[in-house]
Design a protein around this nucleic acid. Structure first.
Length: 98
DNA sequence: CGGTTGACCAAGT
DNA sequence: GACTTGGCCAACC
């Protein structure tokens, strides 16, 4: 099992309507490679299976997305998360921590 | 094997 | 708030 698969494994546990952060994923894997986690998401071969759009930055920013940040925001809004100016509103409310 | 790159983070200005 | 700096770790030349 390589690093990326572990990331996908953790991410797939995030329920719909909630979000998590790159840092939390790294912590769940018992490592500090939040940056490498971002790389893993960018590749994301398990596209529909792994909801990579539910991963945001620790400071409440949405972060990036392979297609476009806008697309990510739309998806999150559809899940019931309010976003303003690429930032999560009330992130604590939606945050899912392992 | 070293250097660069990123969907990052924390602390400083 | 916004922007900069230094640090971090895996993947890829």
């Amino acid at each position: 099992m390589n690093f990326n698969e572990k990331c996908y494994g953790v991410l797939s546990k995030v329920p719909k309507g909630k979000i998590t952060t790159y840092k939390l994923i790294a912590e769940a894997l018992n490592t500090k490679a939040y940056r490498a986690v971002g790389n893993a998401m960018n590749k994301n071969p398990y596209a529909p299976e792994v909801p990579c759009h539910r991963v945001v930055n620790t400071d409440g920013r949405v972060g990036g997305f392979a297609s476009s940040t806008e697309k990510k925001i739309i998806l999150l809004k559809k899940e019931g998360i309010s976003i303003k100016n690429s930032r999560i509103q009330d992130m604590k409310r939606y945050l899912y921590r392992p």
